[in-house]
Write a protein that binds this DNA or RNA. Sequence first.
RNA 1: GCCGCCUUAGCUCAGUAGGUUAGAGCGCCGGUUUGUGGAACCGGAGGUCCUUGGUUCGAGACCAAGAGGCGGUACCA
Length: 492
Amino acid sequence: MSKKTKSFRPKARRPKGFEDRFGALASAENALIAAAADVYASHGFEPLSTSALEYADCLGKFLPDDDRPNEGVFAFTDDDDQWMALRYDLTAPLARFVAENYDPLPKPLRRFAVGPVWRNEKPGPGRFREFIQIDADTIGAPGAAADAEMIMLAADVMDAAGLARSEYVIRVNNRKLLDAILGNIGVPDTDEGALQRLRTLRAIDKLDRLGPEAVARLLGDGRKDASGDFTKGAGLSAQGITTVLAYTEAGADDLDATLSALEPLMGVSEKGAEGLDELRAIAALLQACGYDDGRAIIDPSIVRGLGYYTGPVFEADLRIETVNEKGQPTRFGSAGGGGRYDDLIARFRGQPVPATGFSFGVSRFAAALHSLGRLGTTEIGPVVILALEADQMARYFAMATALRAANIRAEVYMGGSGMKAQMKYADKRNAPAVVIVGEDERLAGQVTVKNLVLGQQMSGDIKDNKEWREGRPAQTTGPKESLIEMVEQALN
RNA sequence: GCCGCCUUAGCUCAGUAGGUUAGAGCGCCGGUUUGUGGAACCGGAGGUCCUUGGUUCGAGACCAAGAGGCGGUACCA
């Protein structure tokens, strides 16, 4: 015979940064999505689904911070040599959709979208290369009311996700304030100035992680981190650094107090006054609707790293510390963020279209909740109907159908193994009960229901092996007509 | 990308000063129990010690390079 050739066997491995979510985690994620979608739909937002792939120029061209164009996206060319890219968020496809279908769409357009997005970046805790976002955006609404609504929606979603009001906060700021301050301290309105502004944003974004001293270096000449790597700074003057840091520290828990603290920092800047007016309008609405109870605060240290925001920006943060499996504190980053981006659609249409939105990182949020132990790690499985006689499958199926009709999750064992293995299977599935109908029960017109939860409790007291096997604890036998009552009793 | 740490069974790890047939716990499979999961006892399977090259009579252990993982940092739409 021919030589035995070793068949190629690939190693089963999951790509880095891509997560498998099974059972309880997947259910929890679905529940989060459903809760958020429900909030958005109840506010009148319409669902929009778009494709995972977009032409790369539709995604990439409107990235203002293009000191690194196209890096971070998964892209390839199709048969027509067109560059395709997996979407990295849901906002860029929305801009494309709106620009493509502008005329017939209602304005303002209120839409929400859910789906996976992909980023080719180094993964970490709560950072994935594929993750699910759920977004709500209002397109064509210039006023601060639309921004205020986004903030309240974000809070509503956090509520719907089951968080207590003390456990999260929506931080609000306005890009125009920092622009005003940078103008006041002499950052010019040139390309070089734009780079300084971008570096300043990124530096402030690191405040919570690195602290004011490191951020001061990043605002100045630059910073060398513990590993010896050097990051070039924004090149602000010493006076400028002091001013910027003072600005980031002007936040207080009370909306009005923060606003009054910010006022003197704006000087005579027109842009600063504009930004403050917008924040005042937002604050007034938040107060009127009762969201000023600590759920929403103005925090000047929130800037969002993204360059395209033009006005109000917001971020949803967990206030509870998360830990990993080893009990070490873990930083998950924000659960969501958003803001006003009046120039994004202008890339396609040539004229500005006011827009504001909020994006909720479902996967990261689910991971954080999981690490908090908030997601059920043990999901209750279905009632398992043992398949003891191969020629009685129709009978087992009928019992399963009857249980389902009574709103009880049920399945028939589909494997080919014996009773012991079937019991182990039910145990591994975390089944609350099994239904046992073998030849004995069938001939007697009876069914046996075993309560696995109770059985496990009782097993703690059973020492004797005989008693263990023959006692048949936690199970009852009765007429087959009372199957449903017997199962229901076992479930309670 | 840069820096550091790590890589031995499915998982968590031990492996003494380089010295025969590489170990433990948990898990998995089987038996005690051909109709009973979870306790207990008994037994079993499972390893190219990440890869390649080098040093050595001899390498899981020492050296070098590479790959992969983790962490920090950068970037992050």
